[in-house]
Design a protein around this nucleic acid. Structure first.
Length: 653
RNA sequence: GGACCCGUGGUGUAGCGGCCCAACAUGCCAGCCUGUCACGCUGGAGAUCGCCGGUUCGAAUCCGGUCGGGUCCGCCA
């Protein structure tokens, strides 16, 4: 790793600038100094403030005059002998200050406190036999200080910097993020993220991709997420939007003939926050020309494998090539379009077994066109009443009216509150159909298909968590594709794109892009268009949606038909997507791409469940930056210049 | 917009109607100590229990509100 900041200039007043005379013992060793020529494992890190980093000290440098700079990680004051552990990004090196060898250095060392920034000069020596520290990479050596300089004093920090295991309130960490990032766990994660981005760049460049930056001030579109808005001073009354993604721009670059584009793109969406969502985030955005769905997926898969191997070489892949599920299959088997395939617990359609059971909930659900799904929670047959109550409450939170459970006893008999309705025989058949064995707990939800599937999908994840399933060290990538092109918009009485309006339709479904009536201005929920599948794909990792993309519609006639289904004329869309529609009239290549969430990827690769842990300066759930104090009021003159005045709703009491 | 959890010396926790002007660990400060590495030993300082109001003879403790942080639903690819 190269040092990230090369802009630091030694100041005239600091000791390293050689403006202060060296003590004789230092001057003596300087005359034949060769330390400046040391090439270390950390790379070219030699500066006027140091010859080695605190992670470089090794027996091979023993006997050399060495200058180190860093933070005081810990001071052990034994009286006439003081040990300073000096720390930087690269490691920790022990500095010994012996009053009888260097009284001046000892005087300074006794005033030094944790987190002071110091420079230590002296001779690097191998440690006395028996005093080596095997738990430290630099533990074979120590710096015998001839001189200690305090480069910067430090207040006692609000939380321990030198304890990587300390649990600190996140609010406090965010308020003093610069100190949090000084701690080892944050550094480790940020370095991993840097390696991730570096690997991404390397792989893309090796495959002929061109990295192109796109603007941050673009045009607002009402589709999708809420835009962050930036008022224009030069054109009062008009606004820019911050990009939710460079979607249109990268398609324009395909029209430009760039052929293969990528970008580590900052994106902004003004929506509520979650553990995996921040208002500003980073995407790997890419687009390719003259490609099919398979071409894009093949490249992205290969890229993901190479990148994962480089960033996390110890992690094993669950399955390669990555399994591909259709949207339909994913929902039927996992109850979600982002399945965690590290464990089984698959959903089973129990409609056939419970049909005509005489149990009203099941019968009425089936009669009403709903479905009955179940899953077998392996080994949870002994679940307590309160555990089952918790699962029931959990299911209700996601829209279930109730949760039916059947515990399978060791002798195969079934214990269940609905046992008397189903009868012993049917209960056993239901358990068998759900894949349950003695000792298991079968959970059943009957509802509208999407509700039953979603609830059981969530239960599946919850049960897996309770059972400790899902090896965190495994990378379980999979694809989900063949999403429905449209969803019925109840309020508007028309079809709406599920992804983005430029996603292409799978070739064999092209003929479905019509209304039942044949009149595109009279759409209906039962139109063939509802069955059309898009050339759309999501990449999923360990149950998290890493990102998704599609092969785009580039032919004007198809686009026109698709827009018509969504109640838009081509002319009407020109206002929203004018640039892209114009561009398509000048020769657009077939193209497609994907966008992957870098924050989520980095989090998963570093075993985190929250993307804040892999972002240097994240926001709180209320969108605040606790360190900078943003957002904040602004000088009225700044608003006036933009022709703006706030008109806030009165607070209700 | 909504549901739930949390808020006690610098930090992390305990205390959950009177025994508490609050305990423990660590950190901090001072003294002693020449081979420590979570150094050790001795002593000391440090919290009106997020804030406001209520209940009560009595509130860190119960209730309401509010602020801040978190998890989730809605929202969001």
């Amino acid at each position: 790793m190269r040092p990230m900041d090369t802009s630091v200039e030694p100041s005239q007043t600091t000791p390293a600038a050689d403006s202060t005379p060296d003590p004789p013992e230092v001057a003596a060793v300087r005359q034949h100094t060769s330390a400046a020529a040391i090439r270390t494992a950390s790379g070219p890190v030699q500066t006027s403030f140091r010859d080695l980093t605190c992670g470089d000290a090794r027996p091979e440098y023993a006997g050399r005059p060495v200058k180190l700079s860093g933070w005081v990680n810990r001071r052990r004051d034994l009286g006439n002998l003081i040990f300073l552990d000096v720390r930087d990004r690269y490691g920790v090196t022990q500095v010994v200050v012996d009053v009888s060898e260097s009284p001046d250095a000892h005087t300074v060392a006794s005033t030094v406190r944790n987190e002071f920034v110091v420079q230590a000069q002296g001779t690097l020596t191998t440690r006395l036999p028996g005093t080596e520290n095997a738990s430290l990479p630099t533990g074979q050596v120590e710096l015998r200080a001839a001189r200690i300089d305090v480069l910067s004093t430090a207040r006692n920090p609000p939380f321990p910097i030198n304890d990587p295991d300390a649990e600190i309130a996140e609010e406090l960490r965010l308020r003093h993020r610069y100190l949090d990032i000084r701690r080892e766990p944050m550094q480790r994660r940020l370095f991993a993220r840097s390696r991730l981005v570096q690997a991404i760049r390397d792989v893309h460049h090796a495959h002929g991709f061109v990295e192109i930056e796109t603007p941050m001030l673009i045009k607002s579109t009402p589709e999708g997420a809420r835009d962050f808005i930036v008022p224009s001073r030069l054109q009062p009354g008009n606004v820019y939007a911050l990009p939710q993604s460079p979607q249109q721009l990268k398609q324009l670059l395909m029209v430009s003939g760039i052929d293969r584009y990528f970008q580590i793109a900052r994106c902004m969406r003004d929506e509520d926050l979650r553990g995996d969502r921040q208002p500003e985030f980073t995407q790997l955005d890419l687009e390719m020309s003259f490609v099919s769905e398979g071409d894009v997926m093949a490249f992205v898969e290969q890229m993901a494998i190479e990148v994962s191997r480089r960033v996390a070489p110890a992690r094993l892949f669950q399955e390669m090539p990555f399994p591909r599920f259709t949207y339909r299959d994913a929902l039927d088997r996992y109850g979600t379009d982002k399945p965690d395939i590290r464990y089984g617990l698959e959903l089973r359609d129990l409609g056939g077994v419970v049909e005509g059971s005489g149990f009203r909930v099941f019968d009425e659900t089936l009669a009403g066109g709903g479905r009955v799904f179940g899953l077998a929670a392996l080994g949870m047959g002994g679940a307590s009443r309160s555990e089952i109550d918790e699962l029931t409450a959990f299911a209700k939170r996601f829209g279930a009216k109730g949760l039916v459970w059947l515990a399978v006893e060791q002798d195969g008999s079934v214990r269940s509150p609905v046992g008397k309705f189903l009868g012993e025989d049917r209960a056993r058949r239901l358990v068998a159909a759900a894949g349950g064995s003695p000792g298991d707990l079968v959970l059943v939800v009957a509802d509208r298909d999407v509700v039953a599937q979603e609830v059981l999908g969530r239960l599946r994840v919850e049960v897996a968590a309770r059972l400790g399933l899902g090896d965190a060290t495994v990378l379980a990538y999979c694809w989900v594709h063949r999403f429905p092109m449209y969803q019925w918009d109840e309020a508007a009485g028309r079809w709406d794109a599920t992804h983005n309006p430029f996603s292409g339709v799978v070739p064999e479904d092209e003929e479905l892009l019509v209304t039942a009536s044949g009149d595109p201005t009279r759409p209906d929920r039962s139109d063939p268009a509802g069955r059309a599948r898009a050339m759309q794909y999501d990449l999923v990792l360990n149950g998290w949606e890493l990102g998704g993309g599609s092969v785009r519609i580039h032919q004007r006639d198809l686009l026109e038909r698709s827009f018509a289904l969504m109640g838009h004329s081509l002319e009407g869309m020109r206002d929203k997507f004018g640039g892209l529609l114009d561009a398509f009239e000048y020769g657009a290549p077939p193209h497609g791409g994907i966008a992957l969430g870098i924050d989520r990827w980095a989090a998963l690769l570093t075993f985190q469940t929250n993307i804040r842990e892999v972002m240097a300066f994240p926001k709180t759930q209320s969108g605040a930056d606790l360190m900078l104090g943003a957002p904040s009021p602004v000088d009225p003159r700044q608003l006036a210049e933009l022709g703006l005045r706030f008109e806030l709703p009165k607070r209700e009491r």
